[in-house]
């Protein structure tokens, strides 16, 4: 597809469902360029103002959006902590967004605990809204850097078999990544999770409607067989508070802990990914093996977000 046909200028990034393959490839192409020649992007956002409204804790996402904007010459308006913003005093999100827009910002990057908050924000303000996490719904910029990692490591996503492990129901990164990977050809997905934490129905419906091959792996005894088929394993954390019965968590946690034994039947080329932070679901013994993609994955947070800023706001 010709370059001119894909433009993200002024676009909201609310949901990975809105992505197209040419759009994603455009982001990857510019991310490559950022990695190759970062100096070219130094003044790309000169004179622009970017608001970072983070109504929920974040380290990696916040800092990469912040550093990316600063490196590109933008002014950053950080509204980082609910204690610091008037949302803590009971102000509506609507009023907060209108107030920020009134400062003359060119873009609002927002993390919010409510599902659908980014969609709402995009309707409320005229400037582009970038969703940096909307409750358990989505995290579309994370999915871009996740898919970018796969492309960097394997050349393409086409034809790969990708497994998602852990809490797929409450993870915001999983739906976005599933929507993004579904844009590629011949992809197969395995959702490895206990039934209570399986992939959400709307995500499954999205795959069914697009004829994407996927299966749910719910039995502990079937995990190892599924892992043997994978090219990529995307690990998320199982959290005790998500289980209706804590003893269920104790019984299952071992089966969802990725260590060398867990990977014993895996392909030698299997890449393990994790949105980080990890707790004990991913053993540090994996770090020294070629399976460990997660630190490299995290390192793409900055270039991919710089590429996004450039495409949305750059001249």
């Amino acid at each position: 597809m010709g370059e001119s046909l894909v433009s993200l200028k002024g676009m909201d990034v609310v949901s990975a469902k809105d992505f197209t393959r040419p759009l994603v490839e455009k982001v990857f192409e510019v991310s490559d360029e950022v990695l190759r020649s970062p100096e070219k992007f130094r003044d790309s956002l000169a004179g622009k103002r970017v608001a970072l409204l983070f109504v929920e804790p974040s380290t990696r996402t916040y800092s990469s959006f912040h550093v990316a904007a600063r490196r590109m010459g933008a002014d950053v308006l950080p509204l980082v902590d609910p204690e610091m913003t008037s949302l803590a005093k009971g102000e509506s999100l609507y009023d907060t967004l209108k107030m920020i827009e009134g400062y003359g910002v060119d873009c609002i990057v927002m993390r919010h605990p409510a599902r659908g908050a980014a969609k709402y924000a995009a309707d409320v303000v005229k400037v582009p809204v970038i969703n940096a996490g909307s409750g358990s719904q989505e995290h579309p910029t994370q999915s871009l850097l996740d898919a970018y990692t796969i492309v960097r490591k394997r050349g393409s996503v086409d034809g790969l078999t990708i497994g998602f492990l852990g809490d797929l129901r409450f993870s915001r990164t999983v739906p976005s990544l599933v929507y993004t990977l579904a844009l590629f050809e011949g992809v197969t997905m395995y959702f490895i999770a206990p039934s209570a934490l399986q992939i959400r129905p709307e995500v499954e419906l999205h795959l069914r409607k697009r004829g994407i091959r996927y299966s749910r792996v719910e039995k502990q005894s079937e995990i190892s067989k599924a892992v043997a088929e994978l090219d990529v394993l995307y690990v998320t954390r199982l959290q005790k508070e998500r289980f209706p019965d804590p003893s269920e968590y104790e019984r299952l946690r071992g089966s969802y802990r990725v260590d060398m034994e867990f990977l014993s039947n895996a392909k030698p080329t299997l890449g393990v990914m994790h949105p980080l932070p990890r707790v004990d679901e991913l053993d540090p013994e994996v770090d020294a093996t070629p399976h460990a993609w997660y630190f490299e994955q995290a390192s793409y947070g900055l270039p991919v977000r710089m590429a996004l800023y450039h495409l949305i706001l750059g001249d």
Binding site: G90, E91, S92, L93, Y94, H112, P113, A114, R115, G116, A117, K119, Y120, G135, S136
Partner: peptide, 14 residues
């Protein structure tokens, strides 16, 4: 919306 954490169930926002 059946999702309690959906913004459309927010009491603060119209």
């Amino acid at each position: 919306c059946p999702e309690l954490t959906c913004i459309s169930n927010s009491k603060r926002d119209p």
